[in-house]
Design a protein around this nucleic acid. Structure first.
Lengths: 215, 215
DNA sequence: TGTACATCAGTGAACGCGCGTTCACTGATGTAC
DNA sequence: TGTACATCAGTGAACGCGCGTTCACTGATGTAC
């Protein structure tokens, strides 16, 4: 018997429990980092036996991959929604910073220290490029005639990654600067490297966004 | 019996073995990340029994702290030496990037995902501020009369962290932009987020450094 | 120079622990006729 | 509506493993007289 979602009660229950497991996983990560993520510990917290979780995730790795996928999905949706609601680059910077600050561990799971040897499956890299697509759209169509910098001309020859996107080199440059500048402030802020420096990172970000190329 | 170093043979042997242990620790981290760092595994690789390492490091945590300290020390020395040899901000950016690329795991141990609840001892934060001191020196004495941006005036009121340093707000701003921009590109590059984008990060960094504030 | 003693590096056994994962199973839920 | 069967969630025991750390010890190295 199926319901309007095309889901049987059992399927809905499965999805619900998968979500609950993931939520507990995030709590563990927030408490002690990714290395502390343990299927047995999650099961115990949920009042189940350890092996029960294997009905929902084939392995610890699969659970972590699911968390990474969710993180990218959440970021991509957040950014897309903001842009479609009319946000410009300043707005996007604020939205991304808010997203990151609301759950630093989720941010670091994506943009923090990479695990040696781990390679994300293709569908995840596809989601991550959604983010870049929005950034390119938000950077607008900058005229190709603007005075090209050396990096701009370099980008003319290395723009396969923006494949299909009708962005000029100046636009690519702007998007890359947006991304790297924002990430620079954000990751240092969230990692606590500004502790003891009492300035407001938001003001720094604002000014960094005001001075994006092309200038 | 002491030698010219003021070290007994035994002390020199201790120091040498501590260094050897740390080297094996770095190799383990490079191979599988910090979580995989295991005292027993290091001992086995060195042909010793596990408990022997406790003569050299009181615990796994103390070993990790020593690694972090060494990493900061190495960066601070590298930056200081380069600056004293006449490097400007461009030179420093190159030197820091080279330092990071020569051992990405060491870079991420410092600037990557923070471990929840871990607080570095005071001597380590002192070393990290050495780096900032060099940056401030390299940013030079910018005139206080340059057109102050909103962030500049904000910094006028929040500059305790540069305590004792006779830097203007414009200089602090310049140093912060240098640091965050460089870190933004570098951490994304080293984490592999540019994979598939065939551009050269060095050119992006160069241009980011050319457009540092004040402008 | 030799002897007595203290220092300390390293060993091997043992501790308790929690991990990921497998397996055979019970029992509840859903399906087909 | 009831009955027979299939599906699947969850359990408990067990596997082998490696971890950090402690302890009592052996034996080599250094020190004092």
């Amino acid at each position: 018997m199926t319901d309007p979602d095309g889901q049987s009660p059992r399927e809905r229950y499965r999805a619900q429990l998968r979500a609950e497991i993931k939520q507990h996983a995030w709590e563990q990560i927030a408490a002690a980092g990714v290395p502390a993520l343990s299927l047995n510990a999650i099961a115990k917290r949920m009042g189940m036996s350890g092996p029960a979780l294997y009905r929902y995730f084939a392995s610890r790795d699969e659970l972590i991959t699911a968390l990474i996928r969710d993180a990218y999905r959440s970021l991509a949706d957040t950014v897309r929604t903001a842009f479609d609601s009319g946000a410009d680059l300043f707005g996007l910077a604020g939205v991304i910073r808010g997203w990151a600050r609301s759950d630093p561990q989720r941010y670091f799971l994506i943009y923090g220290t990479p695990v040696p040897g781990y390679h994300a499956p293709d569908d995840i890299t596809a989601i991550s490029s959604e983010v870049m697509t929005v950034l390119l759209e938000a950077c607008g169509a900058l005229s190709a005639g603007s005075p090209a910098t050396p990096f701009d001309s370099h980008l003319e020859n290395h723009r396969e990654w923006a494949d299909g996107h009708p962005a000029t080199a100046a636009t690519l440059h702007r998007a890359l600067s947006f991304w790297t500048r924002l990430h620079g402030v954000l990751s240092l802020e969230l990692a606590g490297h500004f502790t003891g420096m009492a300035f407001d990172p938001e003001l720094l970000i604002t000014e960094e966004m005001e001075t994006l190329p092309p200038r």
